[in-house]
């Protein structure tokens, strides 16, 4: 295999659950600072692909490279655990259902991992929490518990929690799908800020307008393959593939 040329390189990713092939030979590259959106119908494998990047759902075939290091390299169990824990510190992930830690305050949610993994002091941790919560506009809620926050606020804290590890890459799996419509915008705003700061991001989303406004590239997936990929203007306005057109048409109808 040749050395990777790109910041993120997914080579021939393949994933099966038993006989059922969820990802079929997917290749994808992302450059530093790029923002890529993944769209596609339910069950097409978007989450599976995203979760393969930080090995939450390990691939059954293919390779994933991040910044010159192979994520899913073959190692004995213990060594692999060490390697993957180190890799994951560089990759932030934001989930549809936030997954904030309910037994910890907002501050503790943000500082737990840096304190545990980077051995920073209490003072540094507090500064870090304030910095990250300011970033997402949640500083006033620093000593609240997650159950005392709205969905949009929870998601902003979840983003701050991921950013506190200072990741090189951020993965978003439908970060706004579980939110009431009026709360979507505040989370989108935070993601736009990250885009302006040139954070590298891979975003699985059902929001075509948002994807069109922040992304450099859009990937349309269906049944485990990348059907079409290109700049948003092209994929949204003038797609080559009939399947893409049909998906966008159905989606537009659904949105009305």
């Amino acid at each position: 295999m040749t050395d990777p040329q790109h910041f993120v390189e997914i080579r021939h990713a393949q994933k099966s659950y038993g006989k059922f092939e969820v990802l079929k030979d997917i290749s994808l590259t992302v450059e530093r600072g790029q923002i890529v959106a993944i769209i596609g119908p339910s069950g097409s494998g978007k989450s599976t692909l995203l979760r393969a990047i930080n090995d939450l759902d390990p691939l059954t075939g293919g390779e994933i490279w991040l910044d010159g290091v192979q994520v899913n390299k073959k190692l004995p169990h213990r060594q692999y655990e060490k390697h993957i824990n180190a890799m994951r510190q560089h990759v932030g992930m934001v989930f549809q259902h936030f997954n904030l830690f309910p037994h910890l305050t907002v501050r503790e949610n943000v500082t737990m991992a840096p304190k545990l993994l980077k051995g920073i002091s209490e003072d540094e941790a507090n500064k870090l929490a304030e910095e990250q919560l300011n970033h997402v506009g949640m500083i006033e809620r620093i000593d609240y518990y997650p159950s005392q926050l709205s969905g949009g606020q929870k998601q902003r804290v979840a983003i701050a929690r991921a950013l506190a590890m200072r990741p090189k890459l951020m993965l978003f799996d439908e970060a706004t799908s579980a939110l009431d419509p009026e709360l979507v915008e505040e989370v989108n705003q935070v993601m736009k800020t990250l885009a302006e700061e040139h954070m590298t991001m891979i975003i699985v989303t059902h929001e075509m307008d948002f994807a069109a406004s922040v992304c450099d590239r859009v990937l349309f997936m269906d049944q485990g393959v990348v059907v079409e990929e290109g700049p948003p203007e092209k994929v949204f306005r003038n797609p080559d593939q009939e399947r893409t057109r049909e998906f966008l048409r159905k989606h537009l109808e659904g949105a009305k």
Binding site: N54, L56, E81, N85, A86, R88, Q89, V91, G92, M93, F95, H97, N99, L100, F101, P102, H103, M112, A113, L116, L117, A158, R161, A162, M165
Partner: peptide, 27 residues
């Protein structure tokens, strides 16, 4: 305990044991 809890902890780089002790077990 919701599976997403352990996953979120692992995503931040916590080991299986750390995720269990700090996130899953307290809940």
């Amino acid at each position: 305990v919701d599976r997403g809890q352990g996953e979120a902890a692992r995503t931040l780089g916590l080991s299986q044991f750390q995720a269990f002790r700090k996130v899953v077990l307290p809940q």
